[in-house]
Measured scan of single mutants.
Amino acid sequence: EETVVIALYDYQTNDPQELALRRNEEYCLLDSSEIHWWRVQDRNGHEGYVPSSYLVEKS
């Protein structure tokens, strides 16, 4: 079962390993094994790492 997370803030990045976030957008959580950086996928299928503190699990 996939976990959906919501971005609390915008996040901009130039790092190809990371993914930009848009506030209030939903993302699919792929990997939360790292404490500070979670791997997520956006609705267009793009994947990357984002700061975990910018996300909240959708209830």
Rank of each mutant, 00 (worst) to 15 (best):
C28D: 12
Y27V: 03
G48W: 03
D42A: 10
Q17N: 13
E1M: 04
N24H: 06
Y54F: 04
P51L: 03
S32T: 08
Y54H: 12
N44E: 15
E1W: 10
V4Q: 06
G45K: 09
Y27P: 00
Q12T: 13
W37K: 15
E25Y: 07
V40N: 00
W37H: 14
I35Q: 12
E2P: 04
L19Q: 04
S33I: 02
E26G: 03
H36D: 14
G48V: 02
D15C: 09
D42C: 05
Y27W: 00
L29T: 02
Y54E: 00
R22Y: 06
R43C: 07
W37S: 15
R39K: 11
T3E: 12
S53C: 06
A7M: 01
S53K: 12
Q17V: 08
L29I: 05
E2M: 09
P16D: 12
V56K: 12
H46I: 10
Y49S: 14
E57S: 12
L21P: 02
G45F: 05
I6M: 07
T13N: 05
L21A: 02
D42P: 01
Y9K: 15
D15R: 14
N44W: 05
T13K: 11
Y11L: 05
V4K: 09
P16G: 08
H46C: 11
V4I: 14
G45D: 04
Y54S: 05
S33C: 11
E18Y: 09
E26W: 03
D31A: 06
S59E: 15
R22K: 15
V5A: 07
D42K: 03
K58H: 08
V50D: 02
V40A: 03
E34N: 09
S52V: 06
T13M: 08
L19R: 02
I6L: 08
A7L: 01
S33L: 05
Q12M: 07
Y49L: 15
E26D: 05
V40F: 00
Q41G: 11
E2N: 06
E34I: 07
T13I: 07
S59Y: 04
E1V: 06
H46R: 12
R22V: 15
E25P: 00
W38T: 05
Y27C: 02
L30P: 01
L19F: 09
P51G: 01
